[in-house]
Design a protein around this nucleic acid. Structure first.
Length: 307
DNA sequence: AAACTATTCAACCGCGCTCTC
DNA sequence: TGAGAGCGCGGTTGAATAGTT
């Protein structure tokens, strides 16, 4: 038996919002607020819309200070940085970009950023293959610094990141706790009392040397969450792939020479931490600031790939 | 100019979580 | 304590638009 629908589908209007509907919703909320009940809101206003649809329209379009238009290079960097750190948790990522909505960020990533990154990589691979055919004697030792920098660029690691997700969980890779330690469940629900649910929603950022590395999760049998459910245990070959990929990811995040380490950030702000939640009174989720190495990596690909 | 293809993004959908009774 | 209602999230869809042949 399925869940009861949130509204009567037969009487509810769907599709694009008209200017009149926008005005009705905007005027009402500006005057009365949401009343804490989106489901009841359309009935009060006289809108033939689902409450969820009203909420979405308000949050993504009508809300004051919404920023539309092109993303800046700085915003691109933030999106990529956070995507690598926490995966497709768009609401958290959007919270770092004032005026941007999670829907905006998600669309931007899926339609532009991801394609731009992967497309450039594809072009470059083709060029490398072509030049290798022409000058077969050319070895990597003969590559110039720029070429070497490209081959070890952050772009490859982002792809690695994506590939790792697919390897780990082709059905729902983004929330695989192996890939994103601490994100064992997809929901990042923010409670109304400004506390952060530490059971499933704490943001964990891999950090040199701590025990939430993929390898240690595998070895210690501490895996939890849905990622492994129904998928069986990874083979030893997959294990070794994961382990090497994890090293790549750690290198991406923290640069070479750092030991694998992770810190589950669960609300306690430490010195040097950045308060990632300063967004509309939402919960104070804290993520560590990016290290200089990480910053360098993103400067690398933002410059190389014209982001 | 027409047909086809690719891209964009607003909106919908289903599900997990929290809250309330 | 359990059930139901509502909220918030990420994934997906599809109409509109732009670009190409």
């Amino acid at each position: 038996m399925g869940r009861a629908p949130c509204c009567d589908k037969a009487t509810v209007k769907k599709g694009p919002w008209s200017p009149e509907e926008d005005a009705m919703l905007k005027n009402y909320i500006e005057e009365h607020g949401t009343g804490g009940n989106w489901i009841a809101l359309p009935h009060k206003i006289g809108l033939k819309r689902c409450g969820k649809s009203c909420r979405l329209r308000w949050l993504n379009y009508l809300r004051p200070n919404i920023k539309h238009g092109d993303f800046t290079p700085e915003e691109d960097s933030i999106i990529c940085s956070l995507y690598i750190s926490i995966g497709s948790r768009w609401s958290i990522i959007a919270a770092q970009l004032p005026g941007r909505t999670d829907n905006d960020v998600k669309n931007y990533w899926n339609t532009k950023l991801k394609k731009r990154l992967l497309g450039r990589r594809k072009d470059r691979d083709a060029q490398h293959r072509q030049s290798a055919a022409v000058t077969s004697e050319m070895s990597t030792e003969n590559m110039n610094d720029g070429e070497r920098a490209l081959s070890a660029s952050a772009m490859e690691r982002i792809q690695l990141c994506m590939q790792l997700q697919e390897l780990q969980n082709p059905l729902g890779a983004h929330h695989n706790p192996l890939v994103w330690p601490g994100s064992g469940c997809r929901t990042t629900t923010l409670s109304n009392n400004n506390s952060f649910n530490s059971n499933s929603s704490s943001v964990t950022v891999a950090e040199p040397g701590q025990s939430s590395s993929i390898n240690e999760h595998l070895m210690s049998g501490q895996l939890e969450g849905a990622a492994m459910d129904g998928l069986g245990s990874p083979s030893s070959a997959e294990n070794s792939n994961m382990i090497s990929m994890e090293a790549e990811l750690e290198e991406l995040l923290y640069g070479e020479g750092n030991q694998g380490m992770a810190s589950t950030v669960d609300g306690g702000v430490q010195q040097g931490d950045v308060d990632w939640w300063s967004y509309e009174g939402k919960s104070p989720v804290v993520c560590r600031d990016f290290t200089p190495e990480t910053t360098t990596v993103f400067q690398d690909y933002t410059s190389v790939y014209d982001i």
